[in-house]
């Protein structure tokens, strides 16, 4: 079943949501990112945000536990507020699905799961989504959402993806109309200029010349990790408080940096930048797929777009694959 909502009603719908819950959506401020909406007008649907929404699930500085007076105190996760994420592109939605898998591997991560449970996801489709760095059509894009919006000439078409989504439509049924439109494959298409020919890259692992050509432009600044919607590697830090208690907090880690693989005694397992660079690309395209059947990378292109030297690994991988075939 597909629903339709006029632009006018859509704004009313958003405003009513904002009254009830915290709504986060792409906002074009100093930098485009997911910010808390104050009114429907602030929502800027036209940009693929520079910053992803991952901080809403993998919160930087998440309190894991507190050591207090010789005991361990667990944080009260029920205090986490419900929120709605609006305007999520396919790549950002897919990254959430991949985190669901990664954070529930053999053990479950209660902090991630609690935040995830309390978020309602509204997808947003745009045919001309990003720019010359997007390659989402070349990787696995499996998504889960509550509602998904498709922009039309004078209205949005809305697909429902969950019971939560159904309830939202029901609660606002005066704003939505039932539509007998059948969604087609074309409706869901996204145009990409960049194409990754294959994400089976096991055979080019030893192509040192090819990888070196990419790495020579790497500043090792780690921005690709920080901006990636899927990079989820994390570390803990003990933060002492003045009252004598100690908080254990979680921060995201960056595999492009030396400290990522440094162990006690100062041995560094991935000392060379080329090993670190390859680790990132292989984790994104190969390792995760070997383990869970789909690529970790969602093809959003942020790691190329915002790289100070615009390292285009996609084109280079295509080249290396061609070379390997010969």
């Amino acid at each position: 079943m597909v629903y339709a909502i006029s632009f006018e009603n859509y704004n009313k719908f958003l405003d009513s949501l904002i009254q009830k819950t915290d709504v986060f959506a792409p906002v074009k401020g100093k930098v485009s990112s997911f910010e808390k909406l104050k009114s429907a007008e602030e929502f800027n649907a036209d940009v693929l945000t520079e910053y992803t929404a991952k901080n809403n699930f993998l919160k930087q500085g998440e309190l894991i536990l507190t050591h207090k007076e010789g005991e361990v105190v667990e944080p009260d996760l029920s205090k986490i507020k419900e929120k709605i994420l609006l305007g999520l592109r396919m790549c950002d939605l897919a990254s959430i699905k991949k985190h669901d898998i990664a954070m529930n591997n053999k053990y479950a991560d209660p902090y991630y799961n609690e935040r995830r449970k309390k978020v309602t996801l509204f997808g947003y489709h745009q045919k001309q989504c990003g720019d010359e760095y997007c390659f989402c059509q070349s990787v696995d894009l499996e998504v889960e959402y509550d509602l998904f919006f498709y922009k039309r000439a004078d209205h949005y078409l809305v697909e429902v993806g969950s019971d939560k989504g159904k309830t939202i439509i029901k609660d606002n049924q005066d704003l939505f109309e039932e539509s007998d439109y059948k969604m087609t494959k074309e409706d869901k298409e996204i145009d990409n200029q960049l194409k990754l020919d294959s994400h089976d890259i096991d055979d080019i692992y030893t192509n040192n010349r090819g990888w070196s050509a990419l790495v020579k432009d790497c500043l090792a600044c780690g921005q690709c990790n920080a901006l990636c919607p899927t990079c989820f590697c994390f570390e803990f830090r003990d933060v002492p408080k003045q009252d004598g208690s100690v908080e254990k907090k979680r921060f995201l880690s960056e595999c492009q940096l030396e400290c990522f693989s440094r162990v006690a005694g100062d041995h560094i397992f991935r000392k060379a930048q080329i090993d670190r660079f390859k680790h990132r690309i292989y984790h994104q395209l190969q390792y995760f797929k070997d383990k869970f059947g789909k690529t970790l990378c969602t093809g959003c292109g942020r790691c190329i777009r915002h790289c100070p030297t615009k390292i285009d690994f996609v084109t280079k991988i295509n080249e290396m694959k061609k070379e390997a075939k010969k």
């Binding site: 590697c233 162990v263 397992f269 680790h279």
Partner: peptide, 17 residues
């Protein structure tokens, strides 16, 4: 390897996947 979570999530201890 360096380990943070030991629960198969944090990614630090990964050896070729």
């Amino acid at each position: 390897r360096l380990m943070q979570c030991a629960l198969g999530m944090c990614g630090h201890c990964m050896i070729h996947g």
